[in-house]
Amino acid sequence: MFEYIVRKLLQTIPTIFGVALIIFILFNLVGGDPTYQMLGKHANQKQIQELRHEYGFDQPKYIQFVQYLKQIVTFDFGRSYATKQPIGKMILRGIGPSLTLAIPAFLLTTFLSVIIGLFVSYFRGTFTDKSVVVACVFGMSLPMLAYILFGQYFLAYKLGWFPISGFEVTFPERFEYVMLPILIWVSVSVGYDVRFYRTAILEEVGQDYVRTARAKGLSEPRVFMKHVLKNSMVPILTNLVIEIPMLILGSFLLESFFGIPGLGSITIDAIHNSDFPIIKAMTTLQALLFIFGNLATDILYTVVDPRVRLK
């Protein structure tokens, strides 16, 4: 087991390298030059040179790349060009708000999706099943932006059920500001998850052992609870585990419109401002989370499903 983990960890290194390379190429060589932005309206040639020197833009590309790799390893990306805040601090500050939105949304979505997924698989093929699936698909068919615009206008403004936007750092005040975004998040995601879980569960239902269980005389509910649920947990769980690391990044749309100062909002700002240090940091962060999330899934898989052998 230990060897397996170590081996898998080593395997992530070329991926991380690949990610760094692609990010560097894309954003360094072809991205916007932040120099003019930083110097404002009254720049002159001399200032531009001074700034480039100060920030190391005038060094050859491969040296900049090596510095970037160093940054990844030490996880110190320096400061943002635009706000001059240290990036490490910005990320730490942004995690709280992002998670305040993401975790309840995730829990709620998962909870609802699993219940509904089980429910419809049990009643598969019936009208109930079909209508629920259609309802899910309805939810998925609207773009998030439309949900946000409608939601803010009707639920927050016209009906006054929720605050329109904003955020507080204190608990529990912060929760009231994330309620509407959570609602929107759940509406958009439940559909997708329900259908996924339904498929996973139905896969199991079609298996021979289920037929055997029924032949044995087990009642349908019992078959479901005792056999199907347990076995379909494997794909369901692996799907969940992959999603968890991604939660940290938040949804940039929700964060922008609802004024939640999370990581998603920081990232989008950085993109608009060609604020390369932040882009580097956030992209690297997500890549690392994704890679390690995958690793966790692989390991989880071997634990949960004894049939999977460690290669």
Binding site: T15, I23, V30, L249, T283, N294
Partner: peptide, 19 residues
């Protein structure tokens, strides 16, 4: 493809449209 999918999709799309 692992490398590609590790990078947030939005970033890739933005970067490609830059180029």
């Amino acid at each position: 493809y692992t490398t590609l999918s590790s990078i947030p999709n939005i970033m890739l799309l933005i970067a490609i449209t830059f180029v």
